[in-house]
């Protein structure tokens, strides 16, 4: 893919991917300029990997004017952690890891009660604790508006009060490409540079830019069980099979990579980026359909965001 205009055909044309890239670079630089202590949320998933590439486009050949921040639930896929460490080493940027387990040990967060081992909610106090500890005033996230309908209404600069809460009825108007990041000490904003990207845009960009992603996204053999109509990966405790569940060895891949405890696999032979793009194009289920955490009720995401979730 060329980055410049082809004078023979349509001069000064920008493809949709390049237009989205330009918008994201602009947003990242705006945050760097308007805030004292930003950080980039990095999970090791494809969206945050794309965010890292966009930060390189915005700030190279200089270092990023912010660290990467990983909220480590302790429920990560080992492949995602390995990938994270490799990527950070290659980048030469600073990574801060804040662990849910540490908050649980200190009594500041707790495991979800109930039969499903999920640390989805425990991420929220951990994230807020990291914000207080490092006094971050702006956090980049890789969330997209096409993921979920509460997100479709969220601003690119999403203002949060001192409890990290999102108030959907009291959002600042966001016009043109002018972003108002004014906040008081203790308040912070979440910034979503790839708000206007779709799942397909992300995959296309990964392909066009030749970006390396964790092997989890590609077809591989894995032990899974069928649970609530989905293929759930099994591993060591606490991710082992439940009584009456049968472990199957299947050819699967992950369309989205969250915690092992809340990400379902899909059966897929897609071994290359081109295969994945063809599969996404033909898909009849949304990406977050594989995230069990969103299925609780119709407003699950809105409620979690109000509590300080990304």
């Amino acid at each position: 893919m060329t980055t410049t205009a082809d004078p023979n055909s349509r001069p000064y044309r920008l493809t949709h991917l390049k237009a989205l890239e330009a918008e994201a670079i602009h947003i990242m630089r705006e945050v760097a300029a308007q805030f004292e202590r930003p950080a980039l949320m990095f999970s090791g998933g494809k969206d945050s990997i794309v965010m890292v590439r966009l930060a390189e486009k915005a700030f190279r050949p200089a270092k990023f004017p912010f660290p990467l921040l990983h909220i480590d639930t302790g429920h990560n896929f080992p492949e995602a952690l390995d990938f994270r460490d490799q990527l950070v080493a290659g980048l030469g940027e600073r990574l801060i890891v804040h662990k849910v387990q540490d908050l649980i040990d200190q009594g500041l967060a707790s495991e979800d009660p109930g039969p499903f081992p999920s640390r989805n909610r425990a991420q929220i106090p951990t994230l807020l604790h990291a914000i207080e500890t490092y006094r971050f005033d702006a956090l980049f996230g890789g969330a997209r508006r096409d993921e979920e309908k509460a997100r479709a209404k969220e601003r690119i600069f999403s203002f949060r009060d001192e409890f990290g809460q999102w108030d959907p009825k009291n959002q600042r108007p966001e016009l043109w490409s002018l972003y108002n990041g004014r906040s008081r000490p203790g308040e912070n904003i979440r910034v979503f540079p790839i708000s206007n990207w779709t799942e397909m845009d992300v995959w296309q960009y990964i392909m066009a830019e030749n970006i390396e992603i964790p092997s989890l996204y590609f077809s591989h053999k894995r032990d899974v069980v069928r649970r609530m109509g989905q293929l759930v990966p099994v591993g060591d405790d606490p991710f082992g099979p439940r009584p009456n569940e049968t472990v199957e060895h299947k050819t699967v891949r992950f369309r989205t990579v969250g915690d092992m405890s809340c990400t379902a696999a899909t059966e897929s032979p897609a071994a290359t980026l081109a295969d994945i793009i063809a599969e996404v194009a033909a898909a009849r289920a949304s990406e977050r359909g594989a995230r069990m955490d969103d299925k609780t009720n119709e407003a699950a995401m809105e409620d979690r965001k109000k509590e300080g979730y990304f």
């Binding site: 209404k153 959907p168 009825k169 119709e298 809105e302």
Partner: peptide, 24 residues
């Protein structure tokens, strides 16, 4: 209901805020 994203919007059956949608 596909386009109204916030609880208050669904409850009141109105669109309050700008929602961004994507297709290609």
């Amino acid at each position: 209901l596909l386009t109204d994203g916030l609880r208050a919007e669904r409850e009141q059956g109105i669109t309050i805020d700008v929602a961004y949608r994507y297709f290609a």
